[in-house]
């Protein structure tokens, strides 16, 4: 098991695109905190920020492109051709020859992704929240450990969401497009909450309630429940992806 996870880690970290995800995801949020510092200071002084305890945690959101790219690329790289000249030559063929048990393969792959993204999230969160403390420490309370853990969990689950959707579509572009446009300031999910309260239970909306308090969520959900609902989404999609992966021809 350990050797399989190590192999999957090597594969993931050997992809140039994965490093794009790692670098983008880790650096974007701290960079934004730094760049926005003057405006944030003004906002604090003017008293327009209602809940300053959200400050660093909210900025973390822009780094989510990292986990999304990592989740997508972990699967899509298996399906892209290894050679321009050999149609049908996919890395997956080599992978399945090395680890024929597909369920074990998926477990190892998932574990590798979780390790990488959780580590990335921990680094990004520490950097972002640390910077926020350094820059605005007088006005911003130190973040509660539970909320930081919630944010790290949110990153990991987002990566798994991207991963599960890619397992189902076997194509990187579709999940990437869906997730990235849905991570914009006014996300599609947020728009849907204006139509129906049920949209509050969409994974990205509900998951954010694990660590963000002050937002205009139409339905207030306790952090623990929020975490469970998002985990359920990921579990269901992963299950569908796993079943399809088992059944489909490589």
């Amino acid at each position: 098991m350990v050797s399989r996870v190590r192999a999957e880690l090597r594969k993931l970290l050997g992809l140039p695109t994965a490093w794009v995800g790692l670098v983008l995801g880790t650096l974007t949020a701290p960079a934004i905190v730094l760049l926005n510092a003057p405006y944030t200071r003004r906002a604090i002084a003017a008293g327009t920020l209602t809940d300053t305890s959200d400050l660093g945690l909210r900025d973390l959101g822009v780094g989510l492109i990292g986990p999304m790219v990592l989740g997508v690329i972990a699967v899509s790289s298996e399906y892209t051709s290894t050679s321009q000249h050999a149609p049908g030559a996919r890395q997956l063929t080599a992978t399945l020859t090395a680890v024929p048990d597909r369920l074990r393969l998926l477990v190892a792959k998932t574990a590798a992704l979780v390790l990488v993204v959780a580590a990335q999230a921990a680094v990004a969160a520490t950097a972002t929240l640390g910077l926020t403390q350094v820059l605005h420490g007088d006005h911003v309370p130190a973040p509660a450990p539970a909320r930081v853990a919630g944010a790290i969990l949110y990153w990991t689950l987002t990566a798994l969401l991207a991963y599960a959707i890619t397992l189902i579509t076997r194509n990187g572009i579709v999940p990437l497009t869906l997730l990235v446009i849905n991570s914009t300031v006014v996300s599609v999910s947020y728009l849907l909450t204006k139509i129906t309260d049920l949209a509050s239970y969409l994974p990205d909306i509900v998951g954010a309630q694990m660590f963000i308090r002050d937002a205009d969520f139409p339905v207030e959900i306790a952090p623990l429940t929020a975490g469970l609902v998002m985990t359920a989404w990921v579990a269901v999609l992963l299950a569908i992806g796993a079943v399809l992966f088992q059944r489909r021809d490589a």
């Binding site: 695109t17 794009v20 983008l24 790219v69 497009t177």
Partner: peptide, 12 residues
């Protein structure tokens, strides 16, 4: 995929 990451990242 890299082109899509670049463009979507820039636009969104």
């Amino acid at each position: 995929v890299p082109a899509a990451i670049l463009l979507l990242g820039l636009y969104f």
